[in-house]
Computed example of a mutant assay.
Amino acid sequence: MITIIRYVCKPKRFGSWCAVINRPSVLGSVRQYSVHPVEKAVSKTILDIQRKYTLKQPITMCTAYDYISANWVQKSNSDMLLIGDSMAMTTLGYASTTELPFEEFKYHVKSVCRANGSSLIVADLPFGSFEASHEQAINNAIEIMKLTSKVTSVKIESGTLKNDEYTIELIGKLCSRGIPVIGHIGLTPQRSNTLGGFKVQANKSIEDMQDLVNTAVALEKAGCWSLLLECIPAHLAGHITKTVNIPTIGIGAGNQTSGQVLVVSDILGMQDGRVPKFVNKYTNLNETAIGSIFKYISDVESKVFPDAQKHSFSVKDHLWEQFIKDKI
């Protein structure tokens, strides 16, 4: 069979030829193959997110914890994908995010980043990876960024300006070293013991509200390119959004922020039990999964599965007869 290569185009921008291969098929039709590989999706950049913020277009963010959930998020075209330390409780069975080992977290970062798509990827710095010293924190942030080039930014939970000079100063040092940082204020799960549990923040006094606003301003000044606001009053989240000049991403912070983030297991209903008030559960994968597995077990026990025609492979009769004959 003769293979004919036709050069059909020369893009002006790049000056390279595109080769198309014509190869007659068995049926006589012609199939064309490009020698160029299919390009992977180009990931969004921080500038892309800032552009949406400037245009006042809502910004979307979802969490993901492994290759499968990351594929779901990527194929849904979420603006951002957060590899959150919430995986400790939602995926790995730990009682608290503070129990998550740094090495185990890095394993999941690499898994998530194997999924292809356009979502900008942000990784948490989990508890224990940045508290000991600024040197430790800088080294661990660099290590997270070096795991894969797909990690564009880290996210760090911070206390307020009144009680956490350490983290705010650290964020300034990270940003000055070219490590993009999203600040996380309000309810910070890593500090839940200090905060008295998982409670709404800055809703008891004017002083607390002003402290949170001052913290947001300080984090922007330190170099944060975005802020995550968790479990704070909607009016306060709106005021912070108007006060700072960087995007705000809310979770349990109302609809006046620049964007929203939810945990993928909450969105999909992957677990039993009550979800937080601020969650909108869009489906119930937990029920679907249990029902499907129950049906599989029932089909096996009743010998409905596997079906002899649909799910089984065969061998030609004469080969099988010869096999039996030789075997005997």
Rank of each mutant, 00 (worst) to 15 (best):
E39Y: 02
K40Q: 12
K40F: 07
A41V: 09
V42F: 05
S43D: 07
K44M: 00
T45P: 01
I46N: 00
L47F: 01
D48W: 00
D48T: 00
I49A: 01
R51N: 10
R51K: 14
K52Y: 07
Y53L: 02
Y53P: 00
I59G: 02
I59S: 02
T60Y: 04
T60I: 02
C62Q: 14
C62W: 09
C62G: 10
T63I: 07
Y65K: 06
D66A: 08
S69W: 05
A70P: 03
W72D: 08
Q74V: 08
K75V: 03
K75M: 14
K75G: 08
S76I: 01
N77F: 11
S78R: 02
S78K: 09
D79Q: 04
D79M: 01
D79A: 03
M80R: 03
L82P: 01
L82C: 04
I83W: 05
G84H: 03
S86G: 13
M87S: 11
A88W: 11
A88H: 11
T90K: 11
L92E: 07
Y94L: 06
Y94F: 15
A95T: 13
S96V: 05
T98P: 03
T98S: 12
E99V: 02
L100P: 05
P101W: 04
P101F: 02
E103H: 11
K106S: 13
Y107W: 10
H108M: 10
V109I: 15
V109K: 03
K110P: 00
S111V: 06
S111Q: 15
C113K: 09
R114Q: 15
R114K: 15
A115K: 09
N116L: 13
N116W: 12
S118P: 04
S118H: 13
V122A: 07
V122D: 03
A123E: 08
D124Y: 05
D124Q: 06
P126S: 08
P126G: 04
P126A: 06
F127S: 11
F127T: 09
G128I: 10
G128K: 06
F130W: 15
F130Q: 06
E131H: 14
E131N: 08
H134V: 05
Q136E: 13
I138H: 10
I138L: 14
A141H: 03
I144C: 11
M145K: 14
K150V: 02
K150R: 15
V151Y: 01
V151P: 01
T152L: 03
S153P: 07
K155A: 04
I156Y: 09
S158D: 04
S158N: 07
S158R: 06
S158K: 05
T160R: 13
T160A: 05
L161G: 00
K162N: 14
K162I: 11
K162D: 14
N163W: 08
D164M: 03
E165K: 13
E165P: 00
Y166H: 09
Y166K: 13
